[in-house]
């Protein structure tokens, strides 16, 4: 594939599971074997020098029972600053606290990471990426597993960072809630199917070639959105049947 992402771009990588979204992110990070071609970050080949970027992995790749506090995780982003000093430096802790305050997780700094909700965990990983002052931010499904409010907060934060000249590349499965709002999307399915502004890319043909399925496309306030086909699952279709006649199966009260 050939792809160029310019400074200050905000790009969403879209595609079904196994389409190569995470592989593309890891290739940019220099974490996969490249058998042909070249990947350059800031003009330098990643084969010569591993790029310094901010990276936010998928939540499920992390052992959240590991004995670390939120503050420790965030300061890991500054691990190379004062590399000769074994402990967290005061300066690093101050920067971490500033970032945690900005992301609304400062109150949880001393808590064990397991105690955070999905959205707070995502923010902690984002804070870790941001304290390393990256000019390129790579995020692997940063909005998966979080509620609508948190998702919007994360997206607004990324937008704010993008306005501060940080290039953002993120993968997502959410076409309507996330990808449709981005300035540029890349549809992947083993290779690049199409790329451009969502209004141009979200066509039934492109989405069929991306997802190998027929997907309806509709328009709302000038935005191209994907319409869900109506399905009615389960025995209580359309809510017509009264299931209480069948008797209780699971019950909980005052638990």
């Amino acid at each position: 594939m050939d792809i160029t992402i310019n400074r200050g771009d905000f790009v969403g990588l879209l595609g079904p599971s196994g389409s190569g979204k995470t592989t593309l992110i890891k290739t940019i990070l220099g974490a996969t074997d490249v058998y042909g071609g070249e990947v350059r970050v800031e003009g330098q080949s990643i084969a010569e020098r591993r790029p310094r970027v901010g990276y936010v992995p998928q939540l499920e790749t992390i052992d959240w029972n590991f004995p670390v506090t939120v503050e420790q995780v965030v300061t890991m982003g500054r691990v190379r600053r004062g590399w000769w000093y074994p402990w967290q430096r005061r300066e690093d802790r101050l920067v971490a606290h500033e970032m945690m305050s900005r992301l609304g997780i400062a109150d949880f700094a001393a808590r064990h990471v397991r105690e955070l909700s999905g959205g707070q965990k995502q923010r902690a990983l984002l804070a870790r990426a941001l304290v390393s002052s990256p000019r390129l931010l790579l995020l692997d499904e940063p909005t998966s597993g979080v509620d609508i409010k948190t998702r919007d907060e994360i997206m607004h934060l990324l937008d704010e960072l993008n306005h501060q000249d940080v290039t953002v590349i993120m993968t997502t499965h959410e076409i309507n809630a996330v990808a449709a709002h981005l300035p540029w999307v890349v549809c992947l399915n083993g290779g690049i199917v199409d790329s451009g502004p969502p209004a141009d890319v979200f066509t039934p043909d492109t989405l069929r070639r991306t997802y190998n399925a027929d997907i309806l496309v509709t328009e709302y306030m000038g935005m191209k959105l994907v319409a869900e086909s109506p399905h009615f699952f389960g025995r209580n279709e359309r809510g017509s049947a009264d299931s209480s006649e069948r008797g209780e199966h699971v019950h909980a009260a005052s638990v």
Binding site: M76, R80, W83, P86
Partner: peptide, 23 residues
Amino acid sequence: LFVGYKYLLFTTFEPEVARFYGV
């Protein structure tokens, strides 16, 4: 373990990601 405390903590927590942060 004292000198490498920060590096060992990060590589133990997230072995793959630690590399991306320069460890």
